[in-house]
Computed example of a mutant assay.
Amino acid sequence: MLEYPVVLVVVFVLNISGLFIAGLAALIMARDLEAWKLRLDVILATILYVGFLFGFVNVLVQFWVLRLKGPLYVAMFKPLTIIIAMIMGVLFLGDPVYLRSVLGGSIITIGFYGVLWGKGKEDEEGALSARTTTTPLLEPHDALEDGS
């Protein structure tokens, strides 16, 4: 972000990477060509609605967090998507919930947020030491964006 601070390009590359991985997984999982044909029905309307609405909201949140905190914090929404997907699957699809899934997801989420907490503490300490030094790499993210 320090060398190339264009937020739009960073979010674009992140989303294209996700699209590539999801597309590759879809090609592996759905080999039947009939599954790839589009029909004008409720399923197509649902796909378009979810794609535009949540894709747009996702990009807006990523822009906001990237401008507010920096690139590491954009990833903090990934564990939330795991939790939201599990809840939606249980409520709307009737998926069973297994203890091992809950424990595994909890361990991943706690570990990830532990890393973010540590990064936040590191940023606070870096901001304090940046006031006493003139090294630009130790300045807070906001100061680098403002050019101060």
Rank of each mutant, 00 (worst) to 15 (best):
G120M: 09
D32H: 01
P136S: 10
R39M: 13
K121M: 14
A35M: 04
L19M: 12
P79W: 06
I107D: 01
W117I: 12
V65F: 02
V102F: 10
F54I: 05
L40Q: 09
V6T: 13
F63C: 11
Y4H: 11
G18V: 07
V115G: 06
F54Y: 12
Y4P: 01
L33I: 02
S129L: 12
T134L: 15
G18C: 07
F54S: 07
W36P: 00
I21R: 00
G111A: 09
V7S: 12
W117R: 05
V50D: 05
L80N: 01
L116I: 15
T133Q: 10
G94Q: 01
Y4Q: 06
T133G: 07
P96W: 02
Y4V: 04
F77S: 09
D95Q: 09
G23H: 03
W64L: 15
P96N: 08
F112P: 00
V74F: 06
F52Q: 01
L103T: 08
T109A: 15
P71T: 04
G111H: 08
K121V: 06
R67D: 11
S129N: 10
A85M: 04
M76V: 12
T133Y: 10
R131S: 10
V10W: 12
V10C: 03
K119G: 08
L40C: 08
L33D: 09
W36I: 01
I47D: 04
E3F: 10
I108D: 03
L14K: 11
F20Y: 03
P71I: 07
Y4E: 08
V90A: 10
E122A: 15
T133K: 13
F63A: 06
N15E: 12
I107Q: 01
V42I: 03
V10Y: 14
E122P: 00
N58H: 13
A85I: 04
V97E: 00
W36R: 06
A26I: 00
P96H: 05
P136I: 07
R39F: 15
L33P: 04
F20C: 10
G55D: 05
L44M: 14
L116S: 09
W36S: 05
F54L: 11
L99E: 05
K121C: 07
P136R: 08
D32A: 07
A127E: 07
S106K: 02
Q62F: 07
V61A: 12
G55H: 08
G120D: 01
A30K: 05
V65S: 06
L99Q: 04
E124I: 12
A45P: 09
F52A: 13
D41G: 15
S17D: 00
G114N: 11
K37P: 09
V11I: 13
L72T: 06
L99C: 00
L99P: 05
I108Y: 15
G23Q: 04
R31G: 13
T46R: 12
S17P: 03
G104E: 02
T132G: 06
L48G: 02
G114V: 05
E34G: 11
A35H: 08
A25F: 12
G89K: 05
L33W: 04
G111E: 05
L38T: 05
G126W: 04
R131F: 09
I21T: 14
F63Q: 07
V61Q: 13
V42D: 11
S129P: 00
V13W: 14
A22P: 10
A45I: 01
V90D: 00
L116F: 11
A22V: 11
L40A: 13
F20T: 14
A127C: 04
I82H: 10
Q62W: 13
D32K: 01
K119R: 10
F52S: 04
